[in-house]
């Protein structure tokens, strides 16, 4: 792929590196703290949610295949393993959303000195709300 970028100065050694070597820069946790953790969790939940969007739309195609197919899916959705999947999904959505609000604030230059506190706030709130949601699912099912 053509990697020459006009107008901006380019770090030659980065441009020469393979794409996976460059992507490895995102997951180098050595000597990094909350801000990096917030970023990598954001990226992982984001990629996860894109896959979930595809999965969700694929699963909904059972609607087109009629009542039996749908009922079979609903039965599957009530299994304990599925509730565990729900928990991961709900945490992903909550964290991505709450940290998203943090990133919007920080990205506009608001609260950069409070970023670590904001991260822990978003993280803990996501866990608490996930626990609440899982409890609701278990009580409903």
């Amino acid at each position: 792929m053509d990697r020459t970028l006009s107008s901006l100065p380019v770090s030659e050694h980065v441009a020469r590196a393979s794409w996976w070597r460059r992507a490895a820069a995102w997951v180098d946790l050595h000597g990094r703290r909350e801000g990096w953790l917030a970023f990598i969790l954001m990226r992982v939940t984001g990629i996860g949610l894109v896959f979930y969007l595809f999965l969700h739309l694929t699963v909904l195609s059972t609607l087109a295949r009629g009542r039996q197919a749908w009922d079979a899916f609903i039965a599957l959705a009530r299994s304990p393993l599925f509730v565990a999947f729900d928990a991961v999904l709900i945490f992903g959505m909550l964290y991505h959303g709450l940290n998203g609000l943090r990133v919007i604030l920080l990205g506009l230059g608001v609260g950069s000195r409070r970023q670590a506190v904001l991260f822990w706030g978003a993280f803990v709130l996501s866990i608490v709300l996930t626990a609440v949601a899982v409890r609701m699912i278990l009580m409903m099912g």
Partner: peptide, 27 residues
């Protein structure tokens, strides 16, 4: 391109706060 990873602010030995500056630039 900034993703507000915030490590720049944390490591700066001179109180520049690049993240805050990038937010200023966006506004």
């Amino acid at each position: 391109r900034c993703h507000s990873v915030m490590e720049c602010v944390e490591v700066c030995p001179s109180n520049v706060d690049p993240s805050q500056a990038i937010g200023w630039l966006r506004r």
